[in-house]
Design a protein around this nucleic acid. Structure first.
Lengths: 199, 199
DNA sequence: TTAAGATACGATACAGTATCGTAATAGGTA
DNA sequence: TACCTATTACGATACTGTATCGTATCTTAA
């Protein structure tokens, strides 16, 4: 069965990549509003109609750029629940501390009213997968009987992830053992404790 | 002793308030970049030069608007540490769930590179005071011997506050007992426990 | 007599489009 | 298979219309 081919010059598939990479970089650096399509075209080494032929509007371009995001980190599974949690959180921490690590988050929040697609995709591509990784670790822990029966896993995930946001917002820098400290506190809150000596 | 009065028409002090209120409203609704000085003037019922005579640029206007922010919530002090924490967090939660509750946060994050004054003031006016309230509650608890000696109060504050950010980012709605659940988990992690029955 | 407020303006930046030269393919012909 | 032509649409330049920041000029209030 022959492939149906369209006549004429085909698109260069590398061009799309270059445009989306440039868009993502500028989205992080400048936010959605300051990101201009002209600047994306310049950065990608491409003309503006080349962009508009592929995406009908700036919002679609930004959406497509965010859609290319994905978590690349492998899921942690060392056998020790706290260690797994710390490992995931330290990856998270590294991504926050990269230049403009929080600005993409900022811009999707700020644009929530005007361009809700952005935050939806950001959730789908970044937020949800990372939460799922943490949740999986906790579910395995629960299955092994490490957690108290009433432990609320969703709350636990919120506590862990959110602490980084809060810390960043308060100080914009995060101490090295932060993840470890968080997990230590949380672990005492949700894990079945070995009987504790009264001091 | 006569007051030295300057000749000419004096400024109407109410005008400044009206301008700053309008600026803050638009800052929340549209973000810094989409907020136009023309729109602020229109909303405040004022002309543009009236604004520029008071603040030399849009950035100064936005800065002044954020400077007017302040936490109005009274500090909690019911005698019970968990109750105090829940009370503060529920106030926080209400402010997040107001329309555009997170958008101001979003815009100061997104503008961190271009207009760093915004996030600095936001920290000073909102973030730091709320953290201080939580920290005070925990310090009192520590003084009363309710906390384990090694409890890291700063981490605890990050966990509590951040969980709301994380939850909002994941779902944009927050269940009613959320604050209570958070404090329950955290409290087991940092408080001196009554000896626990092995089940 | 001093300056506040309104109108109108200048300059720039930006989203999106029209026009044009040209590169890349299909299909026919030897 | 090798070449030639018709066809499709890619990409660059230039443009339109609009939004916006910040200012100059004029009127009017204290």
């Amino acid at each position: 069965m022959p492939v149906k081919t369209v006549p004429g010059r085909p698109r260069d598939p590398a061009t799309e990549r270059r445009i989306l990479d440039a868009a993502l970089r500028l989205l992080r650096a400048d936010g959605y509003n300051r990101m201009s399509v002209d600047a994306v075209a310049l950065e990608a080494g491409v003309s503006k109609p080349t962009i508009y032929r592929r995406w009908p509007s700036k919002a679609d371009l930004a959406t497509a750029a965010i859609r290319t995001l994905q978590l690349l980190e492998p899921p942690a599974n060392t056998g020790s629940t706290p260690t797994d949690l710390v490992q995931i959180l330290e990856n998270f921490c590294r991504s926050l501390l990269r230049p403009n690590g929080m600005s993409l988050l900022g811009t999707v929040l700020a644009e929530e009213q005007h361009t809700p697609e952005l935050i939806q995709l950001f959730r789908e591509r970044i937020v949800t997968p990372r939460r799922a990784m943490l949740r999986d670790v906790l579910l395995r822990a629960k299955a092994r009987g490490e957690l108290t029966p009433q432990a609320d896993l969703d709350c636990a995930v919120n506590l862990l992830v959110g602490a980084f946001y809060a810390r960043y917002l308060a100080e914009a820098k995060i101490p090295p053992a932060f993840a470890r400290h968080l997990v230590d506190i949380l672990w005492r809150g949700i894990a079945v404790q070995p009987e504790r000596k009264p001091y």
